[in-house]
Nucleic acid binder design. Structure first.
Lengths: 143, 143
DNA sequence: TTGCGTGCAAAGGTTTTGCATGGCA
DNA sequence: TGCCATGCAAAACCTTTGCACGCAA
């Protein structure tokens, strides 16, 4: 995961925002707006380009949305170990959970051995409701 | 799953094409092109609108693609039982596999009980390579 | 000073909307 | 005949590209 050649103010601001708000996923537009409101104008093009880079380097994860809608980006903690475990994402609050659990890890071995299918963890996520949101009955407008 | 009010030639053609080619996923544009080449011109708007409907009614499944790219639609066989199991999709050939497997179902129970997370099967698909494509080393240009 | 990064403006692609016309029931 | 469906054209989005200028090293 090669670093970009230069360290710039914009890149620092973008990455900082994502990492300080890792529990949520943001669209490009939201990032541009949020940064603008907090006093720093960063060009939309720059955000697009740097997010591309951050996805490739493993620092961000991209979640496509329904047709025609902008996808969202979310900071990945523990990026190093991510290829080894399954992930859960709450469709209501956006929480992203790394399941470093032996029992669950077996699932990929099982699928590989019994169903002849090689799961790519980086592209596979369980979506559903986390305990907090399930309790609240909080589906956040999602069916 | 209300039916549309009218039965039209266009709708019949579209649904037929998807169901006769259920092993593959298509973009709106591909459908328009394919139908045009086989002699029936169906308006792009119509395909958009009817696919929307077919997704809502459970006959098609929508797969968003990477940023800015058109998503794809694929016919859903056994739509009824789908909420009960996890699915695999081969990123190379597009094959869609229904995993009606106890072991996998147990994983979801485990996640519910031990990780306090309620997995929504209809939104959770595992991506990877099926045995055929893995053997061929055929990634179809996907990294 | 060199070369990468930034951001505007314009182009390119995708999806939705408005509206007149067509066709099912 | 009464509605809903269709499809064109235009509008509305979203993303990428080209290029001149700025800034890190």
């Amino acid at each position: 995961m090669t670093e970009p050649s230069y360290k710039t103010k914009q890149r620092e601001i973008i990455l900082n925002y994502f990492s300080n708000n890792h529990e949520k996923a943001y669209t490009i537009d939201e990032i541009v707006e949020i940064l603008k409101e907090s006093g720093t104008v960063v060009g939309r093009t720059t955000v697009y380009r740097y997010c591309d880079y951050l996805v490739k380097s493993g620092n961000l994860r991209f979640f496509p949305q329904s047709r025609g809608k902008s996808g969202t980006y979310q900071y990945v903690e523990h990026a190093d170990e991510c290829s080894e475990h399954i992930h859960l994402k709450c469709v209501s609050c956006g929480k992203f959970i790394h399941l470093g659990c032996d029992f669950v890890s077996n699932i990929c071995e099982h699928i590989s051995e019994h169903h002849n299918f090689k799961v790519d963890n980086s592209k596979s996520t369980f979506f559903g409701l986390c305990s907090d949101c399930a309790e609240k009955g909080d589906n956040n407008g999602i069916d």
